[in-house]
Design a binder for these strands. Sequence first.
DNA 1: GTGGTCTAGACCACA
DNA 2: GTGGTCTAGACCACA
Lengths: 131, 131, 131, 131
Amino acid sequence: MIFIDVRDRRPIYEQLVERFSDLMIRDVLKTDSPMPSVRTLAAELSITPNTVQRAYAELERQGYIYSIKGKGSFVADTKPLLKKSRSRIMSELSELSGRAYRSGISEEEFVNAAGSCYRAHTAAEGGTRND
Amino acid sequence: MIFIDVRDRRPIYEQLVERFSDLMIRDVLKTDSPMPSVRTLAAELSITPNTVQRAYAELERQGYIYSIKGKGSFVADTKPLLKKSRSRIMSELSELSGRAYRSGISEEEFVNAAGSCYRAHTAAEGGTRND
Amino acid sequence: MIFIDVRDRRPIYEQLVERFSDLMIRDVLKTDSPMPSVRTLAAELSITPNTVQRAYAELERQGYIYSIKGKGSFVADTKPLLKKSRSRIMSELSELSGRAYRSGISEEEFVNAAGSCYRAHTAAEGGTRND
Amino acid sequence: MIFIDVRDRRPIYEQLVERFSDLMIRDVLKTDSPMPSVRTLAAELSITPNTVQRAYAELERQGYIYSIKGKGSFVADTKPLLKKSRSRIMSELSELSGRAYRSGISEEEFVNAAGSCYRAHTAAEGGTRND
DNA sequence: GTGGTCTAGACCACA
DNA sequence: GTGGTCTAGACCACA
């Protein structure tokens, strides 16, 4: 379910954070369901528990999971997170479009770029997701 | 040519920076043409020379104008600036579209939002530009 | 005895939870005395029984009331609840004062703020309580 | 200047974050001045560079320092941070005082507790600071 | 068993 | 030189 992309130049822990948060947002991992234990996942991916731990710590900091000492880590309710994330994206898009306008980028150019940038991500992560 | 929007909650010097850089990017103000002197502009806009000075300092820092002691300020060549600005906008748009994708925003929704955000800026600043 | 503040922007069920828990903590509502039935209270306040139900469910979850099927809801013993709540408040106050100290807030400023914040709540809720 | 308290049960990296942010807020460490390098500080404190790195990462995340790869870490401008921190503390104090009021804690009790909690922190960290 | 911290050391990219 | 990531392993508190 979770794979590490060796060609990806980003650190492993960052990849893990993205993969997991993705699965939660798409509701593949349901609220309150248990995450694999740090050691289990480390063994499965053949990486050190430290790196998994780091990813989990970041996921917890961002509100995607909650950890209970001695019990394990669990998927948090990501709905409020999603809402906040969306509204933030929209406000950044607004700021960005203003700068685009002032840099002489036309509406057509801007909208087209938005579309092709978006599709680039679908392609890039689509493959990984189907594994 | 330059107007201050009293309803705009941003500081005046920031408005001036935006208005001037705008005129340069749209090539209304040509490279090497002289900027109005600090005192002249301050008198015209009925604001303190200090505020104009601050705007000019910021424009110089950003590379939009250059100053020659005893002669005044002049419009810089903004083409390289523009190129850098555009490529930065595109890379931010790419990063943003990835986050949109991962937040469950569809391509259609993202592209539509890009368009309407852009048009919001055209409407808001359109009046100033035609002067 | 129970009023809804239409100007209060919080959801009605949350207001109900606060009003009731308040009355229990101040011992206006005694342990084991019956709560008004869901339908009665809903009619009295001209709100839907659903909202009252939600407030009661929350009060039960927090330990303020207990429900007996077919008989109704009753006020729980709130003394242990109170003790826990107080000790939690004190530990949060301790944590907060540490952060205040480290943010350069003086003892005088902190203590004064504590007092005026407290009085703000007395004023705001004073009216409701006397009814 | 920086010491680790072995009796402190909190993790070392957390102590480091607190000590450093403290020094910045009290303006002992000035904006843009260089932080000791990760390796230097690790050697000085006889701990592993990893732990220092972790503390620096947290300080950067919180906005206290900024790091430039290959150049080092530097003290950030903490003034806006301070302002935000203070306003947050005040709003939490307000929320807390409301809960105190509703838990039957009197104004006098609350204000006194605020004072003695505050003084506890002065005492606890006063000694460390003078070293 | 679980998460969380730390050690001692390696290697990378960047300047 | 600098910060940043990772390994392989130890130990702790908590359940």
